[in-house]
Structures are given as structure tokens and as C-alpha cells.
Design a binder for these strands. Sequence first.
DNA 1: ATTGCTTCTCACGTTACGTCATGATTTATA
DNA 2: TATAAATCATGACGTAACGTGAGAAGCAAT
Lengths: 250, 250
Amino acid sequence: MYSIGQFAKKTGVTIRTLRYYDQIGLLKPAQISAAGRRYYHDENMVQLQKIMTFRFLGYSLEKIQEMLQNDEKEFTQSLVKQRNEIQKQKEHLDRITEVLDNVIPLIEEQATVEPEIVIALIQSLAKEEEQKHFLEQYFSKGLVEKLFEVEKYDMVGFHRKEFHFQLQLKQAYRNKVVNEEVKELVKEFFTLMPEGLMQNFFDELRDVLDEEGDIEFPDGLFPSILTQEEEDWLIDVAVTYNLVDMKADE
Amino acid sequence: MYSIGQFAKKTGVTIRTLRYYDQIGLLKPAQISAAGRRYYHDENMVQLQKIMTFRFLGYSLEKIQEMLQNDEKEFTQSLVKQRNEIQKQKEHLDRITEVLDNVIPLIEEQATVEPEIVIALIQSLAKEEEQKHFLEQYFSKGLVEKLFEVEKYDMVGFHRKEFHFQLQLKQAYRNKVVNEEVKELVKEFFTLMPEGLMQNFFDELRDVLDEEGDIEFPDGLFPSILTQEEEDWLIDVAVTYNLVDMKADE
DNA sequence: ATTGCTTCTCACGTTACGTCATGATTTATA
DNA sequence: TATAAATCATGACGTAACGTGAGAAGCAAT
């Protein structure tokens, strides 16, 4: 027979935890004295070991309580389910470390990187798969792959340019500069891509717009610092004006 | 200018979340009407995107608040720290999946496995490294390795025998059976090991006991269903009685 | 009897919101 | 313009698994 303090020392759990388990009915002490003090028996040890094993496997106390009552039956099947559960959590963490392992070297080799850029970088990495999947609804697989390769080739540089591009666009929009200057901006931004790729992109974009009329972008998938108005305006200008112009350049 | 509902839709976060962020001062709406309604501006979008990026990386809202105030400075260093933090969490999950991936095939190939056995199995897997480390303080590395190999060779069988061994010991202790029967029990249990290994084990054990007098087992490192009394009694019987007997057998 | 240690029962704090309940305000429709 | 419908507001409680006191009571030893 152990007092709660002795039992806690023996098992390595805190007194508070034992009281809590008593309270929720997960582990009732073998005896309670007239004065209300808890006394634990060796069988409580076995029970607590079970509980701690389940906790190690990541089960919630509620699930543990169920399993200790229903006993054995579902327990073994439950293990498979639990592995999948843990696996899912692990994949999430894997994704984060993957992104961080991509970003950290990039900012370490550069002298100074604006936090805005880093954030954009992380965002695009985090949503990469989702973005690809979305774009492949409209564009060819080859084009999408190539677009992302351009970004990967010099991530920091790409997002830095993208950032400044957006800043300048905002400026242009405020000043209602509609043609020559904006055209230059867009052109300059697209110098990041090889000529041929840019052509492909605009060709496919024009086809899509002809067919679908308008593309609905799910919110937050392509985060930018532009407002809705500014974006609409950009697409308008880029497509009607620049697309034609690009083709005329040929 | 968006109402809170529009803003929520645009960003994909819930209204409740926006109100909460307002409450803790993480994201204040651009304007609040005389009637108390929140209106969000595009700059709030940028801020929220930052917040969501940090959340993706696993930062707490409190840390995020700090970083948004102190800006840039520690942010990049913080990334490295955060990667390590995530890494630690990942290692924990890795350990669990490792254990589960060991256990699940074992119980799948056996027709019926008592849950007690499975639990013992998981416990020993979970504490394996710790146990080895502890044992190597007293026993030679080679011996410890070999002992664990015996267990690994047929985990389910081993823990099943161990379990029944402990049950019978309890029985024997209750009945105060002190010699012949217990000797047989211990002998039978140790048939799990090859002869030579058993000899090594008892030889080293005797040496340790001669030198150290008594081994202090940290609580919970070697979980068993035996009470303290029973364990002491077992060691007593096994060492004084059986050890001598084993050597006499030679 | 007093001191000192252990234990008791509230009861609030933690994280990041979800989920009502109830009431006010804005927007749409008749 | 009156009213219905949608949206928004503020509490306030619930979540999971305890940590952390506060204040009182029990227990062992001096």
C-alpha cells in the first residue's frame, strides 16, 4: 500500500496526475481513508503501466478509458488505426522541416533578405503542390512544371523581383499609369523566364481565357500583396494590352 | 474594405478566429464602425498572410506577436531554432511509428495475442534504449546485446512466456512454495536462452551482486506485474538458491 | 502540544479557438 | 417605408491534460 506521494515517486507520474486520473475515473486508488486520503495497491501499478503505454502511443485519455473497458477486442485493430494517425501527424511535420530545410540555406547564403521575401518564399513552398494541382486544371503539365522550375532556379531572386514588381504595380495603379510604363514592368518581370516559355505561357493563357472566360482563383492559394482591384487591373492590362503586344513583337 | 464575413471568406479563416486575433491584439481591423463592426483593409490581408505562414511553421500566436513587433532581426535565426523544435517532435513520432511497425506485424501473424502481452511488448520496445543503457552500467556490452537478441528472436513468444512465468511466480509466492517448484519455474524460463548465455548472465550477475551489494532499479524502467515483495523474493531465491544450483549442475 | 511534512479540496490558468445564446445592425425585399 | 432576412456584436462556457497556487486538515515525531 502506497500513499499518493510514494506511488507518484515509484511510477514517475505527478501527484496531480494521479488525482486527475482518479477524478475522471481512469485510475481509482485501491483504498480511500476516512480522511479522504488515497492509497494505491500494486494492481494500480499494472493499470497505470497500461495507461502510460497507451499514452506513449499517443492515445487520448478518453480512448484509453474506452479500451481499458472494452478490453482486448478492438485494441489490436486500433493499433493500425493509431499508426495511420501518427503517420499523418508525421507527414505534416515532414512538410514543415522540408520547407525549412529549403529556406534556411537560401537565406544563409544571402547577406540580407527582407522578411517579406522569406515569408513569400515559405508561402509558395508550403502551397506548391496545391498550386500545381490547381494550375494543371487549366494549363498543360509541361508548362506548369517549367514555370515552377524557373522559380526554383533562384528562389530568393525570383521572389525578390516578384515583390518589387508588385510594389511598383501598386504605385502605377495609384498613379493611373495605364500603358507604356506598366508594359515595361510586366515585360521586365517576365525576363525571369526564357523567351520560349513566356510565349507558351501567354499562348495557353489566351486559350484558357477564350474558353473559360475567367479563372476563379481560390482564396489564399496565390498570396500576393495586391488588392483585388489591382489584380483585376493587372490581368486586364497584361492580357488585353500586353498579350497583343507580345504577339505583335514576333 | 471588407466586412468580417467577407474577409473571412477571402482568407479562409473563420470569423471567430478574426475576432480572437483582434481580441489578443494580433490583427486589429483597419476600422471599427460606431456600432462596433469590424472592417478590414488590404493591408490586413498581408498581415494575416504573415500570421498564417508563421502558424504553418508551427509557431505559437504569442511568438508570432513577438516576431511581428521585433520584425526581421531574430526572425531568420528563429527559423533554425524552429526547425530543431519541429525535428524533436518528429523524432518522438518516429519512435512511436517505429514501435508500432515492429508490433503490428507480430500480432498480425499470430492468431491470438493477449493484450497484456502486447502491452509488455510495446513497453519493452519503448524503453529498449533506456534499458540497455542502464544494464551496461553493470553488465558487459556483449552480454546486454545478446540478451536483447534473445528477446528479438521471438518477441511474442518471449513476452508470452515471461508473462506466464510471472503469473506462476505470483501463485508460488502466495502458496509459499520455496524451493523445488520455483527452481523449475526459473529453469524453464531460462530455457529461452542458449545455455552459454545463461551461464554468462549468472556469472556476471553474481559478480555484480558481490561488488555492488544490491542493484537499484529505477522505477518503471523494467515494468512487471510482480509486487516489490515478490520481486525481492524472486531475486533472493534465484540468486542464492538457483545460482548455486546452476553451478553445481556443471 | 507543537512543529513539519504530506495530503486534501477547490479553483483558476494554459492554447486557440468552437459553439451556443441573445441582442443589435445592416441589407434586401415587398 | 416597413418588415423580413442576413450579418454582426458581445459574453460565456467547453475543449485536453494537467500545472500551480491557496487554505485547511491529517499524520508522525519531538
